[in-house]
Design a protein around this nucleic acid. Sequence first.
DNA 1: GTAACTTACTTCAAATTTTGAAGTAAACTT
DNA 2: AAGTTTACTTCAAAATTTGAAGTAAGTTAC
Lengths: 190, 190
Amino acid sequence: MIQKLLHEEVEVETSIDGYDAANFPEITAEKQGHRHPVHTVVVTHFELARMIERVNRRFASLLRTEMTKLGVEDVGPAQAMVLLAIGDVELSVGELLDRGHYVGSNISYYLKQLADGGYIDRVASQRDKRSARIRLTEKGEQLCANLRDAGGAYNRVLARDDGDLRNLEIAFQTLHRLELVWGNAARYGI
Amino acid sequence: MIQKLLHEEVEVETSIDGYDAANFPEITAEKQGHRHPVHTVVVTHFELARMIERVNRRFASLLRTEMTKLGVEDVGPAQAMVLLAIGDVELSVGELLDRGHYVGSNISYYLKQLADGGYIDRVASQRDKRSARIRLTEKGEQLCANLRDAGGAYNRVLARDDGDLRNLEIAFQTLHRLELVWGNAARYGI
DNA sequence: GTAACTTACTTCAAATTTTGAAGTAAACTT
DNA sequence: AAGTTTACTTCAAAATTTGAAGTAAGTTAC
């Protein structure tokens, strides 16, 4: 059903808030003369990767700003991302690793800071005492809630109508696909 | 239940081709209840941001791997991204800053390493002697070409048909929009 | 013309984030 | 009971990023 939607009638808008065709002549040129679009790659691998890097940088600094506004000084944006990754469920460190493709020692380091700051609780699992169960404290949930509130404004700007919504979904799914392809390639070679 | 799903991680599956609606229960669930699509945001801000962070991490480690394969030891993935950002044009440091939303001192640092490694040339502009003109050397171009070659395989996997292509474009444009919104917010407040 | 200001970039030191090797302890295997 | 694997932590070093301060060239206003 989604599959269908992906391949049907999704017309690319020519102007999204100041982003217009003129900036990307190669894209529109291909589009108009619809000849052999099969082996002509329009948005390459690296263009997307660079875009992702830029957007990621933007978001991190946005997070930093929001946190400064909130008066949070003891943890940075990277740790905030970990909090958001935990969300409102209780999970083990291993599950958290999967959620963000983190490296183990990295998460351990963040979790230590978050625990010191009182943002999370860690309890050894009853079943398996090696496994630590992690969950947000009141304070951690509060920070997430505040960030989510601040984020609401962006959601309203970014998802104004059905078209926006559809594009956001497609972007999400496409990134997920990149994640899988790049991830598998890393493990097994392409 | 929906609430729960929103925070539950999307299962990473082993098969790339079997990417279907089942992986995004929250999206399809929302879609079916087509009564209030206006203020129900399906893919939120933070979900996208987390996805972007993960994908970015993946790509960086992929780059690292490729570079190790190529026997490049003197620069890391971040510097490679700078090389890719320069591309085949000659530009000033300022233009490069815009291309990647870098911080000035950061780029200066990278450019120094890249110049030391012989990947770029810097020449003071004739017009304005403050401004340094940057361009890839033979060696720099070679590295980019090699990376692009390696990337070709991913492009072929990722952009197999028209639908894929369209989705990649939409993803690109949507990310660009995020970039603008997040960037403007950082400068002027939302 | 020159003093004051702005631009374009660099330097440096410190903070933050990430990696990788080695360690611990619990659980599983044989 | 010994050896192996799993789940996580620790630590030190490396890589990346930031921010404040500096330099030198260009611009503007007297």
